[in-house]
Design a binder for these strands. Structure first.
Lengths: 229, 229
DNA sequence: GCAAAAGTGTTGTACTTACACCCATGG
DNA sequence: CCATGGGTGTAAGTACAACACTTTTGC
């Protein structure tokens, strides 16, 4: 390493994850009681320190995996937080990421181990440090991303029903949406393939399953069109 | 500092600045020849290492001031870049910020000292490391911010003319805009105050100067309205 | 008096919103 | 047979895009 690099200060870097879960038409945030001093036992995001041999994104995936045992999840960086005294335990720069996971896949034995709990997005308590700000920033970014890119589909397994998709949309934006207008937007863009009717768990009639078609989306983008929800 | 903190790895943190200038209806990016190894003399953003007693934002302002002698400039964080081998000189996490400055205020003696040059935004060469990606991300973010928040006004001194504002808008979005529609949007939102007619430098007739009225904007937001350009 | 940029309204089109009924099924 | 959620079209209103001429003044 060049001498010019060596002479500079080094910093602890933390990664904090805004892990959002979707269940029963509602959005939840995974929180824990902070396991270490300072502010031990206060509400906190899931976080951890970055290590030498990992990228920022890998560090975020590591944290997510540690607390949920989930991998291959869509994650997005929210930003870096670097105020001087943001962490009362010492000088730490933190990088926030958000992820949206299916709560049904969540390993509840881990929840006990880490004292992790799903809190309704409207009932988030006061969190340590600047974690509340991170959550606000993450939700704002999520709303932007969902509006302009087909990321909402990453939050389901390969298939989903339109009522479920709309429920998720409404949970993210915290506002009701007209059923016909919502479906019109999706059918106009023509990015989904309908499967054989199936989900009978949530209704007697059953709702068709759909899948997001990546090839259709590629063609859609190639035509200069932009995703919009 | 708690033992739990102490045992973790520490990292060099760099701040890289995407310094955008506006002059003669065009957008320029301030670039330099990298002064240190590795990749000495290659094109690079203005950057530097973060120090102990400054916040991330302060570090960005420090870099901006070092290369332009400008302070009190609107800056916004683009994001953190943390790939393992992004910097071939060693493990460095970099946080990118963008700023938009008036090129007329730029101290050209500094340009010589640092071999800094204004490059037209469409002629940006291949830059070191992931700096091209940072520039792309910064422009995308800038466009979003300009569309949804009244940040474009930060890029002028206290006053500006509507033709100049439109020129800046067109430079940022790299597309022409209808004069009447552009002005209609602004007059509909009613956030500007017109001053006595003045700028005669760019036309014989002269264009009215305007100022952005922060009180009007506060009232505008209080009514639940959203800025849109 | 003419070149060069500033300023000003209207009309058609596309998109967004609001809205109500029938359908399929499990119990 | 009825309660529950799934699925469908149209009309009004709003926002956006396209468009041409007059005004001012320095030279």
């Amino acid at each position: 390493m060049p001498a010019y690099y060596k002479d500079n200060s080094r910093f602890l870097i933390a990664v904090d994850c805004i892990i959002l879960g979707f269940q029963a038409k509602e959005l939840f945030l995974l929180l824990t009681r902070r396991p270490v001093e300072p502010l031990k036992n206060e509400w906190s995001l899931m976080g951890g320190f970055m290590e030498e041999q990992e990228s920022l994104h890998q560090a975020a995936e590591k944290i997510l995996y540690r607390y949920t045992a989930l991998g291959n999840i869509y994650m997005e960086q929210v930003g870096a937080y670097g105020e001087l005294h943001r962490d009362s335990g010492g000088r730490v720069i933190s990088v926030a990421y958000y992820a949206l996971v299916q709560m049904e896949l969540f390993d509840t034995s881990l929840a006990k181990q880490f004292d992790a709990r799903w809190i309704h997005i409207n009932d988030v308590p006061s969190l340590v440090f600047d974690h509340n700000q991170m959550v606000r920033d993450a939700l704002k970014l999520l709303r932007y991303k969902v509006s302009t890119e087909p990321v909402i589909f990453n939050f389901f397994g390969n298939r989903f029903t339109l009522p479920a998709l709309q429920d998720l949309y409404e949970a993210i934006f915290q506002m009701p949406m007209d059923k016909r207008n919502f479906r019109k937007k999706l059918t106009t863009m023509d990015l989904l393939d309908r499967l054989e009717k199936k989900d009978k768990d949530n209704s007697k009639r059953g709702a068709y399953y759909y899948v997001f078609n990546r090839n259709k989306y590629a063609a859609f983008v190639a035509k200069g069109k932009r995703f919009s929800l």
